[in-house]
Structure formats: C-alpha cells, structure tokens
C-alpha cells in the first residue's frame, strides 16, 4: 500500500483527507455479517460504528502507521443517522499529537457531512505509538 503521509510527519490541526462517501447495502451487509449483528435494524440506516470503521480505514490508507501502534480510544457522536445510499463527505484532521518518553499519542477527528453540508456524525480516533523496541 502506498501512503501519501507518514505518521511522524503529521502536525496538530493538519487536514489530511476529504473524500466523497456513499455507503451501499452491500457494504453494510458485509460489515454486519463480519460482526455478527443482525441486519434487520439496518435496512435503511448505516450502523453508526461502521462509519467509524470507514474513518479508520481512511486513516490507514492515507497515513503510514508504524508497527505496534495501538488504537486506544474511540468517540462517536451522531447528529442524525446516515442513510444507506446517500452522498456524504468525510473529512479528517489531526486533533492532537504529542510525545512522552518516546511514545507518540495522536488523535484524529473525522466529520461526516451530507449534501447540504450539515453534520451527520463526528468521530475521534485515539492511538498510541510506542518507541521502537518497546512492546506493550
């Protein structure tokens, strides 16, 4: 996989992704089949945590993440439900980046907006990268 950015080059406040997104029935079915959750409640709406999974996938495909990085926390706020098939836009930026004793703590915010530019969901991904040679 070719990444356009490296984890250690990121700076607080930096925007690093803006992409159109439309979640399909097939996407939702594959996600629910993998998690084991019933698809019954999700014929029209997108499971909210699937939106977080998409944001994480976007992070992983855009930024070269070092080996051993740990996903330490996750936040999600729904402003309304995302509808299957509706055109959305996902934007991501670095909301925190700090180093302590060689370990890097970073947080990434993701905002999902609709065609009217109204917010659908806000998300935050927190990760920690341990210094080389140190294991959790």
């Amino acid at each position: 996989m070719t990444h356009s950015l490296h984890f250690t080059d990121l700076e607080k406040g930096q925007a690093f992704a803006r992409l159109p997104l439309t979640v399909t029935n097939e996407d939702v079915d594959a996600y629910l089949e993998s998690t084991g959750e019933s698809s019954e409640p999700w014929r029209e709406l997108v499971p909210p945590i699937y939106l977080d999974a998409i944001a994480i996938a976007t992070l992983l495909s855009t930024v070269a993440i070092p080996k051993g990085v740990m996903h330490t926390g996750q936040e999600h706020e729904s402003h309304r439900a995302a509808r299957i098939g509706e055109p959305l836009t996902l934007e991501m930026r670095v909301s925190a980046m700090s180093e302590r004793r060689g370990a890097i703590m970073a947080a990434f915010e993701a905002e999902l907006t609709d065609a009217q530019d109204a917010s659908v969901s806000s998300m935050k991904i927190s990760v920690m990268a341990l210094p080389d040679g140190v294991t959790a």
Partner: peptide, 12 residues
C-alpha cells in the same frame, strides 16, 4: 434513536 442521536466514548 441510537443511530439518530447516540454518542459513545470508550477506551480500550
């Protein structure tokens, strides 16, 4: 209502 208005904040 969960998908429309829910929030969650967790640490692993």
């Amino acid at each position: 209502a969960w998908a429309e208005t829910g929030t969650v904040k967790v640490r692993w």
